[in-house]
Amino acid sequence: MTGIEALWVPIDRKVNKSQLVNAAVDHNNDNLYIGRAKFMRDLIPGKVSSDLKSIRICYDGKEYSLDNFEVLVNDVNFIWIEASNGDVPKNAVIGGRAEDGETLYVARAKYLFLTIPGKLHPSHKSAYVPFDSKELAVKTYEVLVRLESNGEALKPKPEKLVSPGFEWVRFIKKSGWPENAVVGGSGYDGVQQMDQYIARAKHDTNVIIGYAYKDGIFYGTFNGIEIRTERYELFVKT
């Protein structure tokens, strides 16, 4: 397996959020960035809060919040590649190292309807993400990768990261609304209260969690800007 080094800068430097890797959004729809921090004798990649004040990493079954960390500077050639069971795609971004010297890679994974940044530990055949004070082991995940110069060496596969008992279904208007689409909230359209269904859509190299009204368009936010699109997927119970 071959990884690549990337540019990391200490958080005490002045950084512009637009220069960082926006890996996901949290349950409040705030952006999460990629960072890494030293903990015990490991250097561990994890998720950085939207205000850039803390990083959350996972170690030995638990989640930890730290305020001394580095953030990953974005690269126009970064993309997310699906993998599983410890597999490391070519040109995966090196995020840190375990105490025994093993390389840890920048990864993210789905849990419930959230995308959570974390670490890939190849010898464990798993990625790990911090959530709700715990370290969650996930067998199917995405790895941050730098495309080769021709842009063809690595192509992202369709995303299949999902919790057991659920799946993401592409919304196609002429095919009708998917059965068992999961309601995540409700909103008022000026006339009546309407269900808001959990949805996701791609924006640049990111996947944004948001919502859609039945047979309507997707609404989400990216860097504080509202994103609307008619091309999205719905979170559906199987």
Rank of each mutant, 00 (worst) to 15 (best):
E226M: 06
L120M: 03
G185V: 06
Y232T: 02
I4M: 15
R41G: 07
V88Q: 13
Y33R: 11
G210W: 08
G224K: 00
S84K: 08
Y105P: 02
E82R: 12
D51R: 12
G151Q: 12
M194G: 03
P45E: 12
L147Q: 03
K62M: 08
Y188H: 14
F222D: 07
V183K: 13
E102L: 05
I208E: 02
A24P: 07
D204G: 13
L72Y: 02
H27A: 06
N22R: 14
N91C: 07
L20H: 07
L72V: 09
K139A: 07
I4S: 12
V145L: 09
Q19E: 14
L66C: 07
R200E: 11
G185F: 05
N28Y: 02
Y213D: 04
S50I: 09
D215P: 01
K155S: 14
Y59E: 06
Y219T: 15
N223D: 12
F235Y: 09
V129T: 09
S126T: 11
N206V: 10
N16I: 10
H124N: 10
D42R: 02
A107N: 06
K139V: 02
K47L: 09
L52S: 08
G46D: 06
A83S: 14
I34S: 02
P164D: 03
F78Y: 11
L112T: 08
S123K: 10
Y213T: 15
N150S: 13
E167F: 09
Y211R: 11
K110N: 15
K90R: 08
T221G: 14
A92L: 10
K134L: 13
R41H: 15
A109P: 04
P89R: 09
L104M: 03
G184C: 08
V129E: 04
F69H: 00
E82C: 11
D60A: 15
S84L: 10
G95Y: 05
K38M: 03
A137T: 14
V145S: 03
A83M: 04
V76W: 10
V9W: 06
D51E: 03
N223T: 13
V162A: 03
K125L: 06
G184H: 12
D30P: 00
E159P: 00
V25G: 01
G61N: 09
I172D: 02
P10S: 02
V183M: 11
D67N: 15
I81E: 04
A37E: 00
E233M: 07
